[in-house]
Write a protein that binds this DNA or RNA. Structure first.
Lengths: 141, 141
DNA sequence: TGACATTTACGACGCCTGTCATAATATTGG
DNA sequence: CCAATATTATGACAGGCGTCGTAAATGTCA
């Protein structure tokens, strides 16, 4: 029973996972190369193996063993977001999203997707238009 | 005052800060009470003091000293989001937002605000393509 | 003022994570 | 087959964090 709950990952673990998501299955030396000499060879090894211990990364039995992420990117991001929201509590989603979209330029495609998302949300919201408590507290300034 | 960049906080630190954001300045015993006996008194004390050491919480000199968050909620949430995006890369922002909006029901007002946000983003997107060039932030070594 | 209560200071312990060195083992070119 | 190289296994160490216990200082009240 794969009770894989989105785990909380450290930024270091995220760094490794990101690398694995970008470059597919890689050997240790490839992984090290992908990390761009930021950290030592055995450091990558250790981090990778610890992730294997946690079943977040798999390692096959080929001779130069290949490491591969065992958890999807969206699972992790969702997990992080969840933990963030849990901790913060009733955070205002809108300011958060505002921060997200202002942080970077979005492509027209992405904007289109977002519009679709909002449209969905609106249709799902059908009817419940009562109590819109004003709880904005100024995101900026 | 020194402009502090959004720091990376552990979930435990977030837990304390959340408590402080909710209940204003509190004494240690009030803080402990607010934590709902989940953890020991001195544990709260230690965690609070460590946050003070980091200048994320301030403690005044009243006799039963009062602790108060020294960093705003939006700074932290934005900071967390930023670090998350740094790790993941900017590409996945749409699924991320999808998760955000699906996670909780939005009010009609909020949906309206989001629409305005998207509209702004679209107008700001005057033909420029987001470059995925990621700057490497050389750690050590 | 002396005893009891509250508040604060210190210090300890264990786990996790980042960092790596070194040793052991397997692969491979000659 | 052997030595050089590549790969993998171990072990170490430090700093951060969550968890407290205990001691010291301070406040309170009869």
């Amino acid at each position: 029973m794969p009770r894989r709950r989105s785990p909380r990952l450290s930024t270091g673990e995220m760094e490794i996972l990101s690398m694995l998501w970008e470059h597919g299955p890689v050997t240790l030396s490839e992984a090290h190369a992908a990390m761009e000499q930021k950290i030592g060879y055995t450091t990558v090894q250790t981090r990778l193996n610890r992730l294997v211990d946690k079943s977040l990364v798999s390692r096959n039995s080929e001779r130069p063993a290949k490491y591969e992420a065992a958890i999807a990117e969206h699972e992790v991001t969702a997990g992080h977001l969840d933990s963030l929201l849990e901790r913060i509590g009733d955070v205002q989603v809108v300011p958060l999203i505002a921060h997200l979209v202002s942080r970077q330029k979005l492509t027209a495609d992405e904007i289109g997707e977002l519009e679709a998302l909002i449209a969905d949300a609106r249709s799902a919201d059908s009817g419940s238009k009562r109590t819109v408590a004003r709880k904005k507290k100024g995101m900026q300034r």
